[in-house]
Write a protein that binds this DNA or RNA. Structure first.
Length: 621
RNA sequence: GCGCCCGUAGCUCAAUUGGAUAGAGCAUCUGCCUUCGGAGCAGAGGGUUGCAGGUUCAAGUCCUGCCGGGCGCGCCA
């Protein structure tokens, strides 16, 4: 067992361990100063087969391969003259046609400084790999690639680790230092959430779950825009609906107040009729109530927010915190942010307004913080809000926005920077918008006509699980076409059902095993013995299961759950091939126990994976 | 006009951040499965990665210019 400066066994880049090794060797040759941490256990030795117990997990499979590679390359490098500097190297999953579980292109990148052909470098590094039980085979191939094949013993042992850790499998110590604030949805509270918000909600919630699973402390937050023009317009819109329902309900001054608003600024959505009815029911004519737009605004706001909370709950999403914009004013944070910017010389007064000189920080124009009439802009509170979020001590802020807000990003970044925060610690994740398809034809979505498709309509139609899975199916960066017909089909062409079915089938095998008296305890499966040799279908499943931590790692790195949905679909495919070729209950006792363990591993990871997406995994269907 | 995102098989999308013969699913076609759940499996066809240059051992990926699509460009939020 060894400990790395970063706290992670083999962190990020291979260069880390490579340099270690390299450094130590240099020291032996009287070379560079060396930092040596802990005791290095020769990679590939039997010790390596022991996995750490406890909450955290040190290495993913890929880390293990990186370690083997770096160790060998490090020993190779010290023998080179002129000296070779080991840069970044990458261990990747190779294309299907190449033999091996992992591959590296390192020799290709080292060839130049080593002044040797890449193939030769590859062969020399292969020769340096220490024999052991982890890697079965290392080969040089192609123009200078290295191909690694994991040993059956390692794969089988990793299954034991999975069955021991269960729901904690893939938790990694390195992530425990991260404190993330994830802000998402934050839709203006002027009506129900629509489908576009659903994508943001699914994205944010799944990412939060994935980060937490990996061991990060994550807070999810919804920022409520409860002040400003649009909220007054909401109040006026409700008054307009109220007036239509009962012309005697509003006072004359109230009528004047809402009719003073421009008609095109009013929200036309039908749901506001219900809001109006609700208010009239709770405050009958003649009873005591506050007067004016603000009364209707606040009442409407409360009702709309309740609705949004309900929409999200039905979608399996609940934020840890709801942060109202008004709080920033109540606590004086907006003025405080202004003062700080002023002190830095980042403000100017011009045309009677107060401006933030965002062009100093890369924005393409300066931005107004306070209008001529002294009222602050939305941007002003957002500046204060981001400042406040940083002040809470998070290591990272993530904002998730629809791509239609992308033009807003540079000014927020500028503000964050001007207020003295590291802009690298703020990530603004933009997702492309969603188009709905029904019966092969697009469903139109326009917020302006008030005919937008509500998230709840989609959830009601296809179910929460299908909706969650579909929203997580694609990279945030690509347009998402949501096929409503496909999503609700109870057939194998629907990926949600394909994956869920495998989970149910796994449970069915266990039910059958118990019925036949082949299994007394369906949970433990502690000590199965690894088979002499693995069937290809068994092997494919083992490597797929073992790749789960790497997949989550990648989801966290790329800020997208779509690697996970893809992995689950591949896992389901692997399982069906296994199921087809490898009878479980009909096998001899040792093999049966091993295969039951495999099935147990599959259902465990499907359950974990789906729950990270907010999707249920039924035991029968 | 300017800025950001995108363009990959008939359709919907991947491609591990510059790597090997660009892969899946659906659809189509051909087979298989009365066993632990047939909601399954195996196989086939299908591509000049929008176009044209450039960078290098290597480009769907990077740089330039076009073409096409989406979204922004307010003292709205």
């Amino acid at each position: 067992m060894f400990v790395c400066p970063s706290g992670r066994a083999v962190s990020g880049s291979v260069a880390h361990i490579g340099l270690w090794r390299f450094g130590r060797a240099c020291d032996e040759f009287g070379g560079a100063r060396v930092l040596w941490f802990g005791t290095f256990v020769g990679i590939g030795s039997d010790r390596e087969m022991e996995h750490v117990s406890g909450v955290g997990q040190e290495e993913t499979v890929r880390d293990v391969v990186r370690g083997v590679l770096a160790e060998a390359a490090g020993r190779w490098a010290v023998e080179q003259n002129p000296p070779v500097s080991l840069g970044e190297a990458l261990v990747e999953v190779p294309p299907a046609n190449v033999p091996g579980d992992f591959a590296s292109n390192w020799p290709l990148t080292l060839a130049k400084s080593a002044r040797k052909p890449p193939r030769q470098v590859a062969q020399e590094i292969v020769a340096k790999v220490l024999p052991g039980n982890v890697i079965e085979k290392v080969e040089s191939a192609g123009p200078g690639f290295l191909n690694f094949t994991m040993s059956p013993q390692w794969l089988v042992n990793e299954l034991r680790v999975l069955l021991k850790r269960r729901a904690d499998y893939a938790r990694q110590d390195s992530f425990s230092k991260e404190r993330i604030l994830l802000e998402f949805v934050s839709a203006n509270p002027n009506g129900p959430l629509h489908v576009g918000h659903g994508r943001g909600a699914a994205l944010g919630d799944s990412l939060a779950r994935i980060f937490r699973h990996l061991g990060c402390a994550v807070t999810t937050e919804y920022y409520i825009n409860n002040v400003g023009n649009q909220m007054e317009n909401l109040g006026a819109s409700v008054m307009w609906r109220t007036d239509a329902l009962d012309p005697t309900y509003l006072s004359e001054s109230e009528k004047a107040a809402y009719t003073a608003k421009k008609v095109e600024d009013l929200y036309k959505g039908e749901y506001l009729v219900d809001v109006a009815r609700d208010i009239m029911r709770r405050f009958p004519k003649g009873t005591d109530r506050a007067e004016g737009i603000l009364f209707f605004r606040d009442e409407a706001l409360a009702l709309v927010l309740d609705g949004i909370r309900g929409d999200l709950k039905a979608f399996g999403v609940s934020h840890n915190q709801w942060y109202p914009e008004s709080r920033l004013f109540d606590e004086g944070r907006v003025d405080a942010a202004f003062a700080q910017l002023r002190a830095r010389g980042d403000l100017k007064d011009e045309d009677g307004a107060l401006w933030f000189l965002s062009t100093k920080y890369g924005d393409d124009k300066d931005r107004v913080l306070k209008r001529q009439d002294e009222r602050p802009t939305y941007f002003a509170s957002d500046v204060a809000y981001h400042h406040e979020k940083f002040g809470r001590g998070y290591t990272r802020l993530i904002d998730i926005w629809g791509t239609d807000h992308h033009g807003y990003a540079p000014r927020v970044r500028a503000a964050v920077q001007a207020l003295g925060h590291d802009p690298e610690r703020l990530t603004i994740l933009l997702y492309q918008l969603v188009s709905l398809v029904r019966a092969g034809a697009p469903v139109t979505m326009s917020t302006r006509t008030g005919e937008f498709v509500k998230l709840t309509d989609v959830v009601d139609e296809v179910g929460k699980d299908a909706a969650r899975f579909f929203f997580a199916l694609r990279s945030p960066n690509s347009h998402l076409e949501f096929d409503l017909d496909l999503a609700k089909r109870q057939a194998s062409d629907n990926p949600v059902f394909y994956v869920k079915y495998v989970h149910a089938r796994c449970h069915s095998i266990f039910r059958e095993a118990q019925k036949r008296g082949l299994l007394t305890d369906d949970v433990a499966l502690p000590d199965f013995s690894g088979p002499e040799s693995l069937d290809p279908a068994e092997r494919a499943l083992l490597i797929r299961l073992a790749s789960f931590p790497d997949v989550l790692d990648q989801c966290a790195r790329d800020l997208t759950p779509h690697h996970l949905t893809e992995h689950l679909m591949k896992l389901a495919g692997d399982f069906h091939r296994f199921y087809e070729n490898c009878p479980v209950l009909g096998a001899d006792p040792d093999r049966r126990l091993f295969r039951l363990a495999l099935v147990d591993g599959v259902r465990t990871l499907i359950h974990s994976g789906l729950s990270l997406l907010g999707v249920e995994a039924p035991e029968s269907m």
